[in-house]
Design a protein around this nucleic acid. Structure first.
Lengths: 245, 245
DNA sequence: ACAAAAGTGTTAGGATTACACCCATGT
DNA sequence: ACATGGGTGTAATCCTAACACTTTTGT
């Protein structure tokens, strides 16, 4: 735990007190939504990649920086979804340490969700944590503090934004197949969708471009590859893919 | 400006630094959505009712307390919608004051929207401000700092939550008429709706109870009064009034 | 009388749902 | 051969938009 004490003084000098940032990094791989989690060697519980806000730094910029430092993820889609502000959400976890330790303060944490193109992001632990792994949404390990609830809130926000934010575009690789896209929607909505109808609806939005290639290597027929027509996609998202009233 | 200095020392002792709370209080009166704004005698610009977070206080609890202190509004529906975190969003406004002044710090502000049953909430200025008024949404005065943008964000959140949160229930008096309800929806959605179709759709949700009374006193036929069937309304909101996919 | 409110009718057009069928194709 | 993917067909049902008509009723 020595590193905590070493970093404490530096932290007080650099960061705004009482404020932290935690990101829920979603990725999509092999038909499953995954979340990027960190763990320290001596810990049993997993954590979200998080960090602190520099004294003169913009909040969104800090979220990008922290995420890059702690996961290597760069140029990702990041969106703030809320602040967790219970008075004891973090304090209790450092009770045994001396007062004045940076980590022992009360923290409000600003939650961001990140959407990552490619699950093949390094997933390499930084110098604070010892493990960094993609975990499946429905098989999450025990989470530290309120990080489990933060993930739940992020998912809820994701669901609510599905018609308004380029979620498919940012979660999927630039080329993807229709079954992959459908699986993504089904996972986020937690609901089975009819294949034929999904296909028709998606194509009717006119936001997809069919590529000439197929995805080789599977055990079965090679599926077609698509990519988003970014301009049309963004234009359609302005009013929402599907009308609300 | 003397009161700023007097309060500064006290503030440093009581509140968490760098964090403020601002609420966008929506009310509905005479067919119009209104926002509750405050102004100081010597100021030209209006502000949202806001305040600070006590050192051991829960964030949501603080939002309720602040709102009550600054507007008298009690037992209202309050919902957090985001954090404004630009580094200079508030600092510049106290440049001329001495360092160490509470107000001169950098503040992140947590935004809440409040829904108020009855525009007849006192709207009495507290001891900080000199004016407290309900302003119409489309006739907002010049706002201090980024408070105009905060109102925009609150409205956007309101729109997004229309199918998931008891917005009608909390904005309208306990008994209301169908034209009032429709006007409310039209204002939030910024869109005209067909009367007959709105009537049918609303009644088909089975969340309204028709009362035996009518609203007397208008220049024309007295409209029927309705109230929400709270249990059914809340049950329906769980999955959203209208399906999303 | 007038204007608003309430309730319903109607029609055309879409959208949704839930299947099912056929073909293509990689292993 | 077989499992998956792609694409389309279809029928029943429901929803929506847009209008219009009627009746009610308070001033």
């Amino acid at each position: 735990m020595q590193y905590l004490i070493e970093r404490s003084k530096e932290a007080w000098a650099k960061f705004l007190p009482h404020i932290s940032i935690d990101s829920v990094v979603f990725g999509f791989h092999e038909g499953e939504i995954k979340v990027l989690l960190l763990k320290m060697k001596d810990a049993t519980k997993w954590q979200l990649p998080g960090g602190y806000l520099l004294k003169e730094e913009d909040l969104d910029a800090a979220a990008y920086r922290v995420l890059k430092e702690r996961s290597g993820a760069d140029k990702v889609f990041l969106h703030q979804f809320g602040v967790m502000g219970a008075p004891n959400r973090s304090q209790g976890f450092f009770e045994d340490h001396e007062d004045g330790l940076w980590n022992k303060q009360r923290f409000l944490t600003v939650g961001y969700y990140a959407l990552v193109d490619n699950t093949e992001i390094k997933a390499v632990p930084d110098d604070i944590s010892d493990f960094c792994e993609w975990k499946q949404l429905n098989e999450l390990p025990e989470m530290a503090m309120d990080h489990g609830e933060i993930i739940d809130k992020a998912l809820e926000a994701l669901r609510l934004h599905l018609n308004y934010k380029p979620i498919g575009y940012n979660l999927l690789p630039s080329a993807f197949t229709m079954p992959e896209l459908q699986k993504l929607y089904e996972t986020i909505l937690n609901k089975k969708l009819n294949r034929g109808n999904f296909y028709r609806k998606m194509t009717s939005f006119n936001i997809l471009k069919k590529l000439d290639e197929t995805r080789r290597g599977g055990a079965h027929k090679a599926p077609n590859l698509y990519e988003f027509d970014v301009d049309k996609y963004n234009a359609a998202l302005k009013d929402g893919l599907q009308p609300l009233w």
